[in-house]
Amino acid sequence: TRGHIECKGLILKDGIIHAIPEIEGTLTGTELSHEAAVGKIARHEIEYLMARGLSEEEATATIIRGFLDVKISGLPEVLQKQIDAAIDKAESGF
Rank of each mutant, 00 (worst) to 15 (best):
A90I: 00
M50I: 03
G25Y: 06
L68H: 01
I17D: 01
Y48K: 03
E31N: 11
F94T: 05
H18F: 09
L54D: 08
A61Y: 01
Q80M: 12
L79S: 10
I23G: 01
A61P: 06
A37L: 08
E56S: 10
S92D: 14
A42V: 12
K13H: 11
D14T: 14
D69C: 12
A51Q: 04
L27H: 12
T30I: 11
L49R: 02
G66C: 09
K40N: 13
E35S: 09
G66I: 08
F94M: 08
A36Y: 02
A85F: 09
C7F: 12
R43S: 12
E77N: 05
I83M: 08
T1P: 10
H34I: 13
H44T: 13
E56N: 04
H18Q: 11
H44Y: 09
A37Y: 01
G29Y: 04
L10K: 02
A51N: 09
D69A: 14
G39A: 13
G66P: 05
D69R: 07
E91M: 10
M50L: 05
G39P: 03
D69N: 14
K89L: 13
H4P: 00
E58T: 00
H34M: 09
L32A: 12
Y48T: 08
I41D: 12
S73G: 07
G3D: 10
I46L: 13
D88H: 02
Q80G: 15
A36V: 15
K89Y: 07
G9R: 00
K89I: 01
E56V: 01
C7S: 14
G39M: 12
D84T: 08
E45M: 06
E77C: 01
E6V: 13
D69G: 14
L12F: 08
E56D: 06
A19N: 07
A59I: 01
E6G: 07
R43E: 15
V78C: 01
K81G: 06
H4W: 09
Q80R: 10
L68I: 13
K89M: 09
E58F: 00
H18G: 04
I41R: 03
G25V: 12
C7D: 11
G53M: 08
H4F: 14
I23H: 00
I46C: 10
A90Q: 06
E47T: 02
L68V: 15
T60F: 07
I64L: 10
H4D: 14
I72Q: 11
A42F: 00
K40C: 12
A85G: 04
T30N: 12
D84C: 05
A90K: 05
G25N: 06
G15A: 15
A59V: 00
L27A: 15
F94I: 06
G74V: 04
L10D: 11
I17F: 01
K71S: 15
A61F: 02
L10M: 10
V70D: 02
L54K: 04
E77M: 12
L54S: 07
H44D: 15
M50Q: 08
I11W: 03
T26W: 07
E56A: 14
R43Q: 13
G29E: 12
A59D: 07
D84M: 05
A59M: 05
T1D: 14
E45W: 04
A90G: 03
L32W: 00
I41Q: 07
L49Y: 06
S55P: 04
Q82N: 12
I64A: 11
G39R: 05
K71L: 06
A85P: 00
H44L: 08
